[in-house]
Amino acid sequence: MPEPAAAAEDNRPYIIRAYGPDALRGALLRMFLIRNFEEAAEASYMRGLVHGTMHLSIGQEAVAVGACLGLTESDKITSTHRGHGHCIAKGADVGRMFAEFFGKETGYCRGRGGSMHIADPAKGNLGANGIVGGGLPIAVGSALSAKRLGTGAVTVCFFGDGANNEGAFHEALNMAAIWKLPVVFLCENNRYGMSTSTERSTAVPRVALRAAAYAMPGVTVDGNDISAVAEAVDAATARGRAGEGPSLVECLTYRWRGHSKSDRNRYRSREEIEAWMARDPIPRFAALLVAHGIMSEDEVRAAEAEAERVIEAGLEFARAGPDPSVADLTRDVYTTEAP
């Protein structure tokens, strides 16, 4: 949880002011975990261990971790097809995630969902979604529950820049606003909906500008700056918890890899990709932590090594898991089997 706002003269970055050293170290570890997870996933894919495609979020780690930093386990998130980062940021176990990639019974979805549907309801993750915009109304429903049941939970609804042109976006934001529901619409604007740039797809230069249509606050922040992300999301969740309604937070970021593993990258230039890679959010956060004396360089390296170790253990766990039984093909279609 964010601590009370620091004094006005404190010009340290928000995240340093708002979170204690453990939380900050944990945040860096999670960013490393995400990065390593995605790289290991990619390597597994290339070795043929992963059945379907996958959508990697390398380069976007600050958004996932920054947005979830201030959330509790009772807070909810809805995720997207590019959701591995959100999952890890919300506390998922990477071993069970890998197991899901490998289609194992020990995976989060017991091998039924794969990369695009990883969920961890116990940790408040209502699930990734294969449908662009599919999670938006669900997040509003989750916020409606929180309000009706008085849980005090907020729901962070991750969606990409592509989803902002879906009808569901309009319907969901409008309903959340008229009912003043505790939901944060978090747009991960990585500039491309598959190959189509926001310039070509979206009439407004910033997705956040659309917040005006729903009479809710809309801000655009640097999504590669974890502090900026955390600051904006924490403000939005505070507003939601206070019963003031939803907010729209747009995080500008970039996916280093293609849309999916079948992307041949014809729509963006090498220069553009390299320019964004130079703005890697992880060393940037590490440098911040070192600069503010939260961690030493060695501790950063140790965190990275720890992440590698966790990933390696996760892969091992995943590989060892049993495959689902074909006899159980229709299990879990219904909660109780039809009479």
Partner: peptide, 22 residues
């Protein structure tokens, strides 16, 4: 609850609410 004329959103809200305790 009167919803706006938003069948997709309305249905989705109901689904999300059902997943989370209502």
């Amino acid at each position: 609850i009167d919803t706006p004329i938003s069948e997709l959103g309305g249905a989705g809200v109901a689904i999300g609410a059902a997943m989370t305790g209502l």
